[in-house]
Design a binder for these strands. Sequence first.
RNA 1: GCGACACUAGCUCAGUUGGAUAGAGCGUCGGCCUCCGAAGCCGAAGGUCGCAGGUUCGAAUCCUGCGUGUCGCGCCA
Length: 583
Amino acid sequence: MTTIQQVLAERFDRALAKVYGPELAGADPLLRRSDHADFQSNIALSLKKRTGDNPRDGAAKIAQALDSADLCDRVEVSGPGFINLHLKASFVADVVGQLGADPRLGVALAARPETVVIDYSSPNIAKELHAGHLRSTVIGDALARTLEAVGHRVVRQNHLGDWGTPFGMLIEHLLDLGEGVGDKGVADLNEFYRAAREKFDGSPDFAERARRRVVLLQGGDAPTLELWQRLVDESKRTFRAVYDRLGITMRDGDAAGESLFNSRLEPTVRELTDKGLAVESEGAICVFPPGFKGKEGKPVPLIIRKQDGGYGYATTDLAAIRYRLHDLGATRVIYVVGAPQAQHLTMVYKTAELAGWLVPPARAEHVAFGSVLGEDGKMLKSRTGESVKLMELLQEGDDRALALVREKNAERGEGDEPLSEGELAAAAHAVAIAAIKYADLSADRVKDYVFSWARMLATIGNTGPYLQYAHARNRSILRKAAAQGLSLEAAHITVEAPEERALALALLSFGGAVHDVVASLEPHRLCTYLYDLASTYSTFYAKCPVLKAEPAARASRLALVALTARVLAQGLGLLGIEAPERM
RNA sequence: GCGACACUAGCUCAGUUGGAUAGAGCGUCGGCCUCCGAAGCCGAAGGUCGCAGGUUCGAAUCCUGCGUGUCGCGCCA
């Protein structure tokens, strides 16, 4: 389908060619939604330097030359040189009609589909997912869904912490516990890890065994690998349980943990050394990407082989980015990782560039995010000062949401069948997930945010439940219409009332909002859009009766309602949030 | 010491990449259910966009300096 902006932009091209000649025809008309009209063009202001015209005169010339009789009721120059466009209702109606017929709801496919690798979630083996993993998991998943929706090939990568020195103590602890560990000993992973750590710190004997075990593991000793595999499998099982419950699309097959790169570490170091990028320094082998200065102005190293000959995370990260670019064929590599790692990641990219792995159009991007804070303004912790397990967080969400849904269900009016116990539980779960995810996604991700059940579960304001409510209320009308035998298909849409026009224009902005997220990797832009759509719809809902309207208006409004339901459900879906029929 | 990020209404946050009178929500105050789900809608009050310079027709947005806070800066990830 064509968008309003496309149609207008084409007319501006022609007008610019007419006024200033073909060389300016391609200039961006800078079309924006406006408080003073439906759209405004800022083109005349931006052209001042190129044409010499003062913006008001230029705007007048362009407006005069603009062939817009079929699109606009009025085109006027205003302020310092804005061109205000008041669209004809018939034009808006025509385009929103096309939107209704478009299965993609105006979300254009990417002109150039890419292979995009998204590194997100990335928990550690033998530790449970906790609140610290929430943001990466939720944001990464929303981005994965959104990029897929515009036609990119998305490769999820769960960069599990499944290798390295901690596994010495974990395996020895597993051996100490003996048989039957699969069903009991590892069940509480946090406790398992804590106990292993305690022994490691407390017993030199145990610590020595652990160190020897690490050597066996890295040497590929079969019995050791078997034990390691048991830990990995058990951990993955708990990850899967959390992902399922939270509605995360990461699957077992997406696991690409540190162990995957074990065999590539030595070749990676060799390649970097051969290329002259890595040098010996203080007994270690390091890359010093230019432009990074630390204490006392000394260059900051990426240590790719430690003094003791071992490899650290820098080597793994380099092997991983090489794998993603070369083996997976990515042209876009996205890291959904906390903001504190910004410098480290930049150094990795720089090194990958110098090594000739990361070359345009391929690029690597850090989707940085801030911390989840408790109500005390510090990092979210449980009462006992430990990290909050995601599973427990999700349970609390379900409990709180169930109380909320139950309370609202009791207030239901006549003719509105109460929800069954099963429906209540399902709705509560959907609401809880919406609350948690939306709170995480709706603000600029680089800032910290305070985790507050009261705020995220609020039924008014910019929250997940508010959007779900708008959708559910909307679906209620459609159910009633269907029960009356009214058709939602192929209705001729008209936009007469201002609320209808506002709703139509809001619906038409969906594709743009989705592509904003694709470009910026900032899901909150879609949230802001959806909240605006839901608000606009709520106003329409209050002012424009649907089922009680005259047949022609009723059919048109029903089509708008149906379209709104689709956009809300689709938009929430891109964020990983369900839109229940009833709640 | 060097660097990154943040700072917008009492609180929580937007601000379409330099455009018109800086917008929402919460909270406060005041209206709206004989009418499609009031988990809603409408209205009011509320601002030195951290501070100071600069760039230009125009700056919350770009540049410089400063302040406050958070986080990094060699063998953890």
